[in-house]
């Protein structure tokens, strides 16, 4: 299934691995947090982790800081726990890998997710796929909150009085806006 990332759909190079499946050497696979914990040897390869809805990892103890991909599941789009998990990953742990939303991911929530540090989306909802396919993403261009580190790909203008700090932060991050 294609993944929405950086303003376009791209082919997904990752595959979710069942808990009893053996990982092919070098393949990009996603495992459950239990498996990630119980098989530390996985952590050196191209292995991402999927979190169930509401699952909170101990990022440091679990050695997730350098993981290339963390997938956060939204069992229902009204379950907002994933926003807090993503934001803590970016802000507290300076997580640099991909944060991907999966599950009940809908068009009107994607801008909010971008602002919380998500940068990739696995989408099954037809009208959402169609809208994004035409380049349509109906978020607000303005925000009272400063952008979360890592969400710099999403363009927002914050309060003028905070703008100077935003500019400084973006220069530190070394990135422009999408």
């Amino acid at each position: 299934m294609p993944i929405y990332r950086g303003g376009a759909f791209v082919d997904d190079t990752w595959r979710v691995l069942g808990d009893d499946e053996v990982a092919d050497r070098g393949a990009h696979v996603i495992v459950s947090l239990e498996r990630w914990r119980s098989e530390p040897q996985l952590r050196t390869g191209n292995v991402g982790v999927i979190l169930r809805a509401g699952e909170e990892p101990d990022v440091i103890a679990d050695g997730l800081v350098d993981a290339p991909l963390i997938v956060i599941t939204f069992a229902k789009f009204t379950d907002g726990r994933g926003y807090s998990v993503a934001r803590a990953l970016r802000e507290r742990h300076a997580f640099k890998g991909e944060i991907r939303a999966t599950g009940d991911v809908l068009l009107d929530q994607i801008p909010l997710m971008l602002r919380c540090g998500f940068d990739a989306f696995e989408i099954t909802h037809g009208p959402t796929i169609a809208a994004l396919g035409r380049g349509y993403l109906p978020g607000l261009a303005l925000s009272y909150q400063r952008p979360v580190g890592g969400s710099r790909r999403y363009s927002t203008v914050v309060r003028p009085s905070q703008a100077s700090r935003q500019v400084a932060q973006e220069q530190n991050d070394g990135a422009g806006q999408a």
Binding site: F77, D79, R87, M113, R115, C116, Y144, R159
Partner: peptide
């Protein structure tokens, strides 16, 4: 009011 307005983390409490 300003801080909580469309705060992206806290709209689905």
């Amino acid at each position: 009011r300003q801080w909580s307005t469309v705060h992206p983390e806290f709209l689905f409490l």
